[in-house]
Design a protein around this nucleic acid. Structure first.
Lengths: 141, 141
DNA sequence: ATGGGTGCAAAGGATTTGCAACATT
DNA sequence: AATGTTGCAAATCCTTTGCACCCAT
């Protein structure tokens, strides 16, 4: 049987595939919505009825370590994850807490072995905070 | 008696000054170390013996809302605060968890009423993650 | 049979909230 | 006296860990 994109990506990253891992990665690859652990759990527990929150936590953390997903820490209260590992800019809405990808602006990039002020760099994040267009509508009253 | 810089800054921001608030802001203004709530508490509980962690939490959160301090959410596990509200670049060390200001790189700026992708912007953050020079030393063995 | 993955329950921490005491005007 | 601030204790919520069970090799 033909292996899925998610399956292959896991193997490439040196992660042993499993039903749960494939499902979680597949979800990340097809939903560009910066889900939290809870969101991923809720989305998948219907298909994998035995899924536990713990597994989602552990799996996403592992994905971030292995570079299969990106951890996004904009929200004061909860971490979310991004399936698109290419660098790009985020926007965080203080009202609804959603994270959006920003198309308008170029993302900063990091070269191989890059350093700033003598510190060795692995990741960059550029994000804006404010009120998203959706929330701005309801604000006007 | 002459009012301190911290006192004046609070009044300007529309915050009613109090012993605790002045002390916390004064600490933020004289220590460029991106302290966590805990750090601020430990530093001040000697001078204000009745100080509570709750007050530090509430006060710093309020400072961030009023623009007197900046909330920095790089660390997955804990938030820290920055007394310098002018935009600038941060570096986060994954090993020791410290946050540094980056001098080498220019900070992104936000103009009055700026928007990205139609969303209304209030704050920007640009940060790098990696291994700081101090931790890199001990790593070499 | 073995090694790793999963998921439950419990632990661990950070942050927030309710509320009574307190300080300042 | 009135208003707003403080701080204790408890509650809440997110995340991690320990461990037994299960699955796949």
């Amino acid at each position: 049987m033909k292996k899925s994109k998610a399956y292959e990506k896991l193997v490439e990253a040196g992660i042993k595939p499993s039903v749960q891992r494939i499902a979680i990665l597949e979800y990340m690859m097809t939903h560009n919505i910066h889900p939290t652990v809870e969101t991923v759990y809720n989305a998948l527990v219907g298909k994998i009825q035995t899924l536990s929150v713990t597994t989602v936590y552990n799996t996403l953390r592992m994905f971030a370590e292995k570079g299969v997903a990106q951890m996004v820490t904009i929200d004061e209260h909860r971490v979310c994850y991004d399936g698109f590992t290419d660098p790009h800019v985020h926007f965080f809405c203080k009202q609804c807490g959603k994270v959006f990808d920003v198309q308008d602006l170029p993302a900063p990039t990091i070269g191989e072995g890059m350093a700033v002020d003598g510190h060795q760099v692995n990741e960059v994040q550029l994000y804006y905070r404010g009120l998203c267009s959706e929330c701005a509508k309801h604000e006007t009253k």
